[in-house]
Nucleic acid binder design. Sequence first.
DNA 1: GCGGGATACCGTACCTCGTACGGGGCGAGC
DNA 2: GCTCGCCCCGTACGAGGTACGGTATCCCGC
Lengths: 255, 255
Amino acid sequence: MSNARKGKVDPARSLAILWRTREPASRSAGPGLSVDRIVRAAIEIADAEGIDALTMRRVSEALGAGTMSVYTYVPGKAELLDVMVDTLYGEMSRPVDVPGGWRARLEQIARENLRLYRAHPWLLRAETSRPVLGPNLLAKYDYELGAVADIGLDDVEMDAVLTLVLGHVRSAARAELDVVNLERETGMTDGQWWQSHAPWLERFMKSGSYPTAARVGTAAGEAHGAAYGPEHAFEFGLQRVLDGIAVVVADRQGT
Amino acid sequence: MSNARKGKVDPARSLAILWRTREPASRSAGPGLSVDRIVRAAIEIADAEGIDALTMRRVSEALGAGTMSVYTYVPGKAELLDVMVDTLYGEMSRPVDVPGGWRARLEQIARENLRLYRAHPWLLRAETSRPVLGPNLLAKYDYELGAVADIGLDDVEMDAVLTLVLGHVRSAARAELDVVNLERETGMTDGQWWQSHAPWLERFMKSGSYPTAARVGTAAGEAHGAAYGPEHAFEFGLQRVLDGIAVVVADRQGT
DNA sequence: GCGGGATACCGTACCTCGTACGGGGCGAGC
DNA sequence: GCTCGCCCCGTACGAGGTACGGTATCCCGC
């Protein structure tokens, strides 16, 4: 009942590990731990069992090590999460030749980010705003900025455009993954859930207090039931956002 | 180190409390608890000390009650959070006459939602996707849908437009509040943080590995330092999103 | 006015998790 | 061969959610 990340995060600590400033040689006996092995194990656990199952005890157990051994390589759980996040960034696809101009490039970036969130849902709860400046984050940022370079935007606008697109992806991914999670937790699909709540809702809907909500909610609910919902929200929103960006680009290009 | 919300949430439990199906009369002696008093106390704590400080022990203490007394009125912390969220929705402003058409109405909604997040930052960590169907959420949804009614959109599109706008607000609010939080936690403004990391960054920037990131990151960082950053991201993104929506609206109106 | 039942209230305790602390053991250099 | 340093880990503490089993208080019917 706190966030996936506690308050205390010392950036300097994370940086040293992220850039692997000091990588101790595995010398003594035992499991032969390393930052890499720990991070890989942690990612596997988070992928398979969710971020709530990611405890330090669980990680050490998976590595056949004592609970506290992990702390030799990682100052704490927050820093471990930082490294996990940066590691994922390093595994993203970054094609250089995407035909179709800035719009196609941004679309590709949006889809690749969505793919990442789908593959590692816990990422949504591990990322923080002030980013962890790991090597892979920088590479990601650099690559993604490239999509909107040389189309007439100034530097601040480039950053703003990228922030907007990625924000939308996060937003849509969160919605989609919440649906999946709830279906697993409750053993009930979204459609079934809406149906089970329908009588309850109707009671208040028919009171006439919420006329629009009743009509639209029902329509949206039915649409969701038709296995088209979060996916649709992503696509619809992405096209709207890109349309909006197109207005700025056209303006800057003096059309 | 988990979310603000654990896995187990029984919607039926929350519903009964949200709609105040059964409100026990305060009969016996003691602090004289009630769902309302508990929720108010919890909101005050979360507002003042953050959601991490919101523990059941802390709530009961604030009420001058024993730790477990709260459980007489609320099945658990998850349900308490549900009621807290719905209570906030109930306090939102919902003006009926906003001049300027759908665009002005959506802008107003976006700003009001942002205001709510600013006033109660913990809301960002308490909301879940599958919404808690409290009376105030329904009222909010109904009101907000009204902003895009009768402009040619079908029901599913209305829902999609609203989802998009609210998603953007959440996204921007999260960014903004993270900045504020980090400034408080680290005792360092965003500008100072960027400055303190500048030497570290430059080392890698100058390596030429991240040319665009170096230039744009610096520009964006300086802009953030000038106390214009999250606020700007909200405004910029909102206008882009509305521009994108305008395209659809124009199309539906057969312009 | 009195007995009984319901209901508000809460003390204690258990479980999980992060991690501080101090000690043990192995390898390498002198 | 001995010492130093680093890897590894057993134990334990503190925080937080909440199950359980009371105790106290009030209202009702008589």
